[in-house]
Design a protein around this nucleic acid. Structure first.
Length: 297
DNA sequence: AAGTGAACCTGAAGGC
DNA sequence: TGCCTTCAGGTTCACT
């Protein structure tokens, strides 16, 4: 599921439940996800209160009241579920409705809130490419996960000038450059395809050619910067994309996938008015690229 | 240095 | 029905 818009959607879903809650108990179904949980993970999280829930690129950041940050990445198939106990017969004993697939529930955070009892959030991840770790707040920016991250495509950080500068001189295909988190942080395979279509730029064009010879922003860098911001903003507003039955933390489905112009549309007509081209699929560095060879140059 | 491909892991979908 | 292959939203590492 998760590129930046999906992670941001998860963040917005979890925020009202997590912020201000005390993590009363942590259940780990196994010792690792993609990486082992850090030593003492369960003990270090238990009893802490969540001060705020933020996001950087595709990382969720839960600030805890002891100054550490619970860093969470959803990998390819990670998802959170919010669960509310259906009944409370005995104080402290909760019953939860059974859900379809508990097989890959790896982490349960049991929460304690003044206004609500029996609340918990469950991390499910079939492929286990996700991970969680703990980093002191003061060391977050210098941590290897974050030190090299590029521009956030939301807000004011991503402007044509900066983007052109980052791409200048690069011979790598534009598609690969935009997937590189050191340039723009948070884009993934879908939104790179969609942004390139909106910018009418070929995924195969050398990345450096979107800048002018002087390394400054030309019309192409302008178009690309605008396209990236617009597609990410629109996707967040739509609640992200729901593929392969993934759901948001509150069970809602995102609907941006209905807005895809090229992703997954191989062989279908290009939607650029008057183009008349056909969407093609090609493989670049092992990943599918969908584009219209006619209007993307 | 830069670019490509494989690896990590599981499940779904399609072909035969 | 079942077996096999291919593909999937991410990231890192090894190789050319």
């Amino acid at each position: 599921m998760p590129e930046l818009p999906e992670v941001e959607t998860v963040r917005r879903g979890l925020q009202p439940v997590l912020e201000g809650a005390r993590i009363a108990e942590v259940t780990l179904a196994r010792a690792d996800l993609r990486f082992p949980f850090p030593p003492g993970f369960r003990e270090r999280v238990t009893g802490r209160r969540v001060v705020s829930l933020g996001r950087r690129a595709k990382y969720l950041l839960a600030d805890l009241d002891d100054g550490t940050v619970l860093v969470m990445h959803l990998g390819m198939s990670g998802a959170f579920r919010i669960e509310q106990a259906a009944t409370q017969t005995v104080p402290g004993a909760f019953h939860y409705a059974r859900s379809e697939d508990r097989k890959h529930d790896h982490v349960i955070f049991h929460l304690e809130r003044a206004d609500q009892a029996g609340l918990r959030i469950v991390y499910n991840d079939p492929r286990r490419f996700g991970f969680m770790t703990l980093v002191p707040r003061a060391e977050l920016e210098s941590h290897p996960f974050f030190a090299g991250l590029g521009l956030e495509p939301v807000g004011n950080a991503l402007d044509a000038e900066t983007l052109a500068h980052l791409l200048a001189g690069k011979a790598t295909p534009l598609k690969a450059a935009l997937l590189d988190q050191r340039i723009v942080a948070g884009l993934g395979n879908i939104y790179v395809c969609e942004a390139l279509f909106r910018a009418r730029l070929s995924p195969q064009r050398a990345a450096g050619t979107v800048a002018t010879k002087a390394g400054r922003a030309g019309v192409r860098a302008e178009r690309l910067a605008v396209a990236i911001r617009e597609v990410i903003d629109a996707a967040i507003a739509a609640g992200g994309s729901t593929l392969r039955d993934h759901r948001q933390a509150d069970g809602q489905l995102g609907y941006f996938q209905h807005t895809f112009q090229v992703y997954g549309r191989e062989g279908e007509p290009c939607r650029t008015p008057g183009c008349g081209g056909t969407v093609r699929r090609l493989v670049q560095s092992g990943r599918s690229t969908f584009h219209c060879p006619r209007c993307q140059r």
